[in-house]
Design a protein around this nucleic acid. Sequence first.
DNA 1: CGGGATCCTAGTCGATACTG
DNA 2: CAGTATCGACTAGGATCCCG
Lengths: 121, 121
Amino acid sequence: MSLTNTEVTCDIREMLDRIGDKWSVLVIVELAGGTLRFRQLQRSVPGISQRMLTLTLRRLERDGLVGRTVYPTVPARVDYELTDTGRSLTRLLRGLADWAAEHRDTVVASRVRWDAAEQAR
Amino acid sequence: MSLTNTEVTCDIREMLDRIGDKWSVLVIVELAGGTLRFRQLQRSVPGISQRMLTLTLRRLERDGLVGRTVYPTVPARVDYELTDTGRSLTRLLRGLADWAAEHRDTVVASRVRWDAAEQAR
DNA sequence: CGGGATCCTAGTCGATACTG
DNA sequence: CAGTATCGACTAGGATCCCG
């Protein structure tokens, strides 16, 4: 169960390079609820700009986590959905969310203590 | 088991803000092997600069994931070790590493395909 | 509607030099 | 040894405009 080796840590870094940016997990989580169009997705992820939604989706599509379907109607219609690989990620995200929920208070308290000590200097 | 709600996604973003940077997980993984001094840690994490190791350790200490002990000897000696909270993270990191190991080939293949299609334009 | 192309800023990171 | 301070490069991300 040891984690101390270069190979494993590189694996983790790869993962974080994939989903550690500002928007990827938010998009993935929304798509976990089902297929969404570009506009729907943008409305579902408050604060994301058009540009960042596009960039994020392209990266996820490139990695095979998200599928893109274009319907040649006018105006254009584009559906986004998680692939099987993408869906397999939701289990992991659940794990992250659970850890965060469980330890948030402790972490916040630690920060408050730290910042107070900082202030004291 | 749904992930689609703002609260959960914020939890995950908090987590990623905490460990999603370039060095945090690498430091955590090294400390998972036991207490280390500053220099030992720097040698254990190839490529990390003095500055980034300091910054990373300060952040982790502020969040209560890493403990710091100073021995007032000359020259100074400082030990770093995971707290209980920090140690609880290793289970999660194991999950990330496992996912990465299992899906790396698929993801890489998807990228190659994407980049080839890109080239074709 | 679903983007692409540009421009710009704020923050991250690395390199280097210095200190107790 | 264990840092702090400074500078400069790079880049993620936001704002805006335009197009089919």
